[in-house]
């Protein structure tokens, strides 16, 4: 059993293994942070609020537009943990305000963007289709 201490597995491997574990933990934390930040609710809320407002601004009267919001619904479902809430509370338009409000997080906060068109605008509740696609319907009327 005359093991040479220099050649033993423990003596050589521990510092490297420690570094490797440290590095992996660090990389994992960074990946989770980047994923949460970039694929998070706040950016998606802003993108959809602006997208819908610009669609309304550019729409001619008596136009119906169906917009695929599946990715936003998936974020809302993950954060709200309730399909009903994710469908009911994610996209809304104030009664007397020409503004689109998108709220995908678990709380009451969200992003609001106003449009300048004065046509009569209706924003439907998101519709979960049989194919799994989620859409909202925007109606622009004279």
């Amino acid at each position: 059993m005359g093991v040479n201490k220099r050649g033993s597995a423990n003596a050589i491997a521990w510092p490297e293994i420690t570094f490797l574990i440290l590095f992996l933990v660090f990389a994992a934390i960074l990946l989770v942070f980047v994923n949460n930040s970039v694929g998070g609710a706040s950016l998606t809320e802003e993108i959809y609020a602006k997208k819908i407002a610009l669609i309304i601004d550019g729409a001619k009267p008596n136009t119906d537009i169906v917009l695929d919001v599946t990715d936003a619904y998936e974020i809302a479902l993950r954060l709200k943990k309730d399909s009903g809430r994710a469908l009911n509370e994610s996209f809304s338009k104030a009664n007397n305000e020409p503004c689109i409000f998108v709220s995908l997080g678990s709380g009451q906060g969200g992003y609001s963007y106003c449009y300048f068109s004065d046509y009569d605008v209706t924003l439907s509740r998101p519709n979960l289709e049989a194919s799994g696609r989620v859409t909202v319907k925007i109606e622009v009327r004279e």
């Binding site: 706040s42 802003e46 609020a49 602006k50 509370e89 809304s92 338009k93 104030a94 009664n95 305000e97 503004c99 409000f101 709220s103 009451q108 906060g109 969200g110 992003y111 609001s112 963007y113 106003c114 924003l123 509740r125």
Partner: peptide
């Protein structure tokens, strides 16, 4: 200069 805003209150349809 319209940049939109974060809002704390949900508005109903």
């Amino acid at each position: 200069e319209n940049t939109g805003k974060r809002s704390a209150v949900t508005k109903n349809v």
